[in-house]
Design a protein around this nucleic acid. Structure first.
Length: 208
DNA sequence: ACGAGGATGCTCT
DNA sequence: GAGCATCCTCGTG
């Protein structure tokens, strides 16, 4: 059963934590199905300088200017916000919070569970298995997810999440987010301790 | 093992 | 025109 819109219609940081251990599923028209267990996420909220829709939200009045691409971050929970970074890599986010409130969770790394051969074909640069999906741009390439998925519903095929295997709190750590210049003081990155498929960059981490 | 540097295109100013 | 929620390659040790 795909995770429902209710799962994503919650505070962003809670969703970011709860997505750890869930499975990302991608069904291709050819019939192949790819599955990856989520081992690393980041949360972005509307009053967060690192949030793409940050300048659309007025903290004083609570008003939202829903203009441009970032306005989709204020859309219905459970939809996709797919973003092209450095003109090269697509990053997959799930929109959180009620419609009208901004928020999203970035899927940063997954552990391949099913369809490794298909992932290898899409990721010729990957020398080892861990290079297939240990980064936000790598996993979208491995899964064949790009701008076409933007704004689509992630609570039903062809791209969705399932329950997976819950991860106990003592195996999850937090840290500051990666690659940012703003909002670096917020510890809004979650990852499975010691998992080989977590991305390489490792800021100082804390037990959850 | 690790660090530096370049590629690349979209969005907003 | 600047900045960017990244990845890859090629140095050096």
């Amino acid at each position: 059963m795909p995770l429902s819109a209710d799962f994503f219609n919650r505070p962003t940081l809670q969703v970011a934590r709860d997505l750890i251990g869930r499975d990302l599923v991608r069904e291709h028209p050819s019939g192949e199905t790819l599955v990856g267990r989520i081992v690393e996420t980041e949360g972005y909220t509307q009053n967060d300088p690192a949030f793409h829709g940050w300048n659309l939200y007025d903290e004083d009045t609570g008003e939202v200017r829903r203009e441009g691409r970032a306005a989709d971050l204020f859309g219905p929970p459970g939809t996709a916000y797919v973003y092209l970074i450095y003109g090269a890599h697509w990053l997959l986010n799930v929109v959180t919070e009620p419609d009208g409130t901004g928020g999203a969770v970035l899927v940063r790394a997954v552990e391949p569970l099913r369809g490794r051969d298909a992932m290898r074909k899409r990721r010729p640069a990957a020398k080892k298995d861990i290079d297939l999906t240990n980064g936000p741009g790598k996993l979208t390439e491995a899964f064949g997810i790009d701008g076409e998925a933007h704004r689509t519903d992630l609570t039903a095929p062809p791209i969705y999440f399932t329950d997976g295997e819950p991860v106990a709190g003592d195996r999850v750590s937090t840290s500051s987010r990666i690659g940012l210049t703003k909002g670096v003081e917020r510890e809004w990155r979650w990852f499975v301790d010691g998992n080989r498929f977590v991305s390489k960059a490792t800021p100082s981490a804390h037990k959850q």
